[in-house]
Design a protein around this nucleic acid. Structure first.
Length: 326
DNA sequence: CGGGTTTGACCTGCGC
DNA sequence: GCGCAGGTCAAACCCG
């Protein structure tokens, strides 16, 4: 981490030649005015020094916060990987015991097997949240919705499909807001590091922009779904709704070689800074629970940002541009 | 030729 | 029971 860098930058104040490296003032005919100006400059210097001290303090504080966030993130990541490993082990056990079922479903007629596939879909529980964002983008998976309860009944056969779907829906639904070019109507893929295959599109009632349906195409057993639709309020914002969790790691990047075909992260490179949280603010009331959620989101974002070299570079350039101006 | 996208049809739950 | 709307399917098409 570069908190040390941040901390180090607080000492920039020492290197600042406030007032600039001026030549010795020429002997002018107006000494009174000169004195007045120098005293004025002294005030400015004092003010600047105070400001620098304040900024330095703030920097230290932020560095501490960053350290805490990183520690938290590492801790969570460890937990997640542990849980994913456990879930993968459980999955392999279950799949080996239910292979006959999957094989029979594949050869059925066109329409009917749908419920079968849905059954297998919901029967295949997703492991805990895999935080997207390792792709260097700020694609933070944000749990949305009042309940974060785990879908515990997915292993058991269930009579009502809807009930099961609802149960699973309650488990993992996250939303991602991505700023996109409004002129490009084809922008229906949110770059999040995973491979997606589009399987449908629909115009919904409340939004004139069509909603695209995606499925994870990286792992056939992965049942994550994604809906992408432009925001009705702000057409520059793509709203990606994730349903479920990936039961696999993020696919390896193949950058530089032109990338894969579309559907993948390389299909569309959303240029602008993603994750617009203000939309979420609009949607959610200010209950204590939601505030906590938001805080959690902010923490995740901060952790993601601190690990992102691009962000770091941008921050460095932004800071270096500002410091002389101050 | 294989894999992804498009798109019209179909399925299903829900409200009236 | 009927209509509506969201979600899904799959044939046709496209592309590298």
């Amino acid at each position: 981490m570069d908190e040390q860098w941040m901390i180090g930058q607080t000492s920039l104040s020492l290197g600042l030649n406030v007032g600039g490296p001026r030549r010795a003032p020429p002997v002018t005919r107006d000494h009174v005015e000169e004195d007045f100006m120098s005293s004025k400059k002294n005030h400015v210097v004092e003010a600047l020094e105070a400001e620098l001290q304040r900024v330095g303090k703030e920097n230290r504080k932020l560095s501490d916060m960053l350290r805490a966030l990183v520690a938290k993130y590492s801790d969570l990541q460890g937990k997640v990987s542990g849980m994913m490993a456990a879930a993968a082990a459980a999955n392999s056990h279950r799949q080996s015991s239910t292979t006959s079922e999957g094989g029979s479903a594949a050869s059925a007629t066109r329409k009917r097997p749908r419920s079968d596939s849905l059954d297998t879909a919901s029967r295949n529980p997703s492991p805990p949240l895999a935080v997207a964002g390792s792709s260097g983008r700020f694609a933070v998976s944000v749990p949305v919705g009042p309940d974060q309860a785990e879908c515990t009944s997915v292993h058991e056969p269930c009579n009502s499909k809807r009930v099961r779907v609802d149960e699973c829906k309650a488990s993992r639904v996250s939303k991602l807001y991505v700023h996109a070019d409004p002129a490009d109507l084809s922008l229906q893929v949110v770059k999040d590091g995973y491979q997606w295959r589009k399987y449908g599109q629909k115009v919904t009632k409340d939004n004139p922009c069509p909603r695209a349906y995606f499925r994870c195409s990286f792992a056939p057993s992965c049942q994550v779904k994604k809906k992408v639709q432009r925001s009705a309020e702000d057409k520059t914002v793509l709203v990606a709704t994730y349903d479920g969790d990936h039961n696999h790691a993020q696919p390896p990047k193949q950058q530089g070689s032109g990338g894969r075909k579309s559907g993948d992260a390389a299909a569309v490179c959303v240029s602008a800074a993603p994750v617009l949280v203000q939309q979420q603010r609009k949607q959610e009331a200010s209950t204590a629970e939601q505030v906590a959620d938001r805080k959690n989101l902010a923490e995740q974002m901060a952790a993601t940002l601190t690990r992102d070299p691009g962000f770091k570079a941008a921050l460095v350039s932004a800071l270096s541009g500002r410091i002389p101006a101050a």
